[in-house]
Amino acid sequence: MATGGGTQIEGAAGGGVVPWAVIAGYGAEDEFGADATVSYATTRDLDLSVLALSVGFDNRFELSFGHQRLDVGPLDTQVRQNVFGAKMRLAGDLIYTDMPQISLGVQHKRQQDFVIPSALGARSSSGTDVYLSASKLFLAGPGGRSLLLNGTVRATNANETGLLGFGGAENDSHRLVGEASAALFLSRNTAVGIEYRQKRANLSGVDEDDWWDVFIGYFPNKNFSVIGAFVDLGSVAGLERQSGAYLSLQASF
């Protein structure tokens, strides 16, 4: 059972773009687990590469680090960002309680190439998101298949998750956004799902669209998983219609 999930683009245990309430790795109480993940998304004008490391312990705490690099083809440039994450399970169990597993997380982000974000009007090169996630696995859901549902509420002032800095002329303060995902296990090791991540524009004159994707995940064993997806990022940094492929490979210990 793939209860450790994948790793989302900011480094937290989750799907592709949405964090889940699960704790990284397969550790139970008093156990330790770790994940190393490489992810890559490519659209018409953009290439996003992510390297993420995470550790979970006691099935309660998770620490993560994500390094993101976004190559912007038409501008022949790249922006990079480091994300330092922490997550704590507050209540519930993904499988064994009627109540969903609920976790509180933070993602502290430090944008490293601020020239372009600054030119677009971003106010700050660093920021911190805070999120609350609820995840529940229905062991015997529709047709006896296991169904995972997840909802996340995030407070953020990031532009394009922070890759384009934080705040702007339209808005500088943290606002709430909603994120949701669902995955259906077709077999013990294969899941298909959908994710949605709301985003809000802070920069004046630069559109920012919600993100969504449909994915298929393969979890052949506890040490390896692969997730492939079709992602739609909408308009990013003035570049319209950015949709394409996403691939994520994860090793777990």
């Binding site: 109540m99 969903p100 609920i102 609820a134 995840s135 529940k136 549902l149 997840n150 909802g151 996340t152 509420v153 709430l176 956004v177 909603g178 994120e179 949701a180 949605y196 709301q198 919600d210």
Partner: peptide, 14 residues
Amino acid sequence: VASVAASVVTLSLI
């Protein structure tokens, strides 16, 4: 709509 939808999903899970 997106924000309401996401909130509904979150609340229905809680």
